[in-house]
Design a protein around this nucleic acid. Structure first.
Lengths: 211, 211
DNA sequence: CCTTGTGAAGTGGTTCACAGCT
DNA sequence: AGCTGTGAACCACTTCACAAGG
């Protein structure tokens, strides 16, 4: 089929990949029913998603797990390295810096930055924390295309401005605020408060059904 | 209009609320154009969203900021308290426990749990860390309906099982794994690896356009 | 005159149901 | 016989464009 992937399918592929990895190398073949149930989507959804890349299944049998994993990794662009920088070394920043899973996926942390002079120079996850003034230069010199912001809300927009000027392509924002950046910069937000509010809404809705 | 809210609109309301809060109490009225641009959505989208709750705007003028804020809070179910528990006291769990923003929104942390005996009994964010064995009883006794899992991937499903048995209604899962729970339990996932992969895909796609 | 509120049209994504292979 | 691959039908959400109203 080979037509372009719907935006919303991208995170699903990420999930499929994780499920395949969790299966381990022992599994040779897997059916759409089985993988879909692991991933929490419908079998039709899974087959449709996989069909965007072409036909990698075997009718009557299922998908070759190894082939499928490699194919998804190739299509998502995970066969190369993606250097990224981290800004903000609070508890959250530290957790992100230490998370080894990123490196396994090809995400290589090439710089950690903070505005606090007490933190600059300390070691986090084997790297020296650098001052914010070095950020723009480092992004360019180390060819980082992705930045993760884990600062307090008040600092986030300033950091985003610095990053935008330095030519960063993508920002993952953990600060609880909406960033305004040029169109060329792709922002994704992870907002824990918002996630809790969504859960609360569904509880609330179940208790107080709409009139 | 007063028809039911589309699922995907719920996180947007959370965003609108944040924007209104950031405006401060000085602003009396705000137009859909202005608020939409702050929130990063189209003005039509904003007006449509607000219309699901009824008519709270003034034609020719805009929305009364205070009224709107109260209305959104009421509709999202944020006028009451939501007790929640945290499981897992790594860097991420610690960051979550310390984040004061939750409490302001009515999310009251009523228990922190970990399986590691070295962590049990220590103080985190002013609370004593409790052993995993106390989890189910505490959830019931303290009427927690929401749980946040911030354990390693391997431990998450076991914790989810405990939580499901204890009658929890909603889980926010930070562990990089897919949880399988009864239908009665509502799970939302925050998967940082996946977010990075999505960003990588868009970069990859821009560099290697689909044939 | 300005800005909201909203049916109607448009878009994008999901599900269905079955043809096509092995 | 069993499971994939996919056009077609369906559904949910978004955008448009303009009527309604202070």
């Amino acid at each position: 089929m080979r037509q372009h992937l719907p935006r919303v399918a991208v995170p699903r592929f990420s999930t499929y990949l994780r499920c395949l990895d969790e299966l381990g190398p022992g599994i040779e073949h897997i059916s759409s029913d089985r993988l879909a149930s692991l991933a929490g989507v419908s079998p039709a959804q899974l087959r449709k998603d996989l069909s965007y890349f072409g036909s990698y299944g075997v009718r009557g049998v299922g998908y070759r797990a190894g082939v499928l994993r490699d194919e998804i990794r190739r299509e998502l662009g995970l066969t190369r390295e993606w250097p990224w920088v981290l800004v903000g070394v609070g508890n959250l920043g530290r957790a992100l810096a230490h998370y080894a899973g990123f490196a396994e996926q090809g995400f290589r942390l090439v710089g950690i930055f903070d505005i606090d002079p007490d933190k600059v120079g300390t070691m986090v996850a084997g790297q020296r924390v650098e001052p914010l003034e070095s950020l723009a230069r480092a992004v360019r010199a180390r060819a980082a295309r992705i930045a993760v912001i884990a600062t307090p809300a008040e600092a986030a927009q300033g950091v985003a401005n610095l990053l935008a000027e330095s030519g960063i392509a993508s920002i993952l924002n953990f600060a609880p605020t909406i960033l305004h950046v040029p169109d060329a910069v792709n922002v994704r937000r992870v907002d824990v408060s918002s996630e809790l509010q969504v859960l609360a809404f569904f509880l609330h809705e179940a208790a107080v059904p709409a009139p």
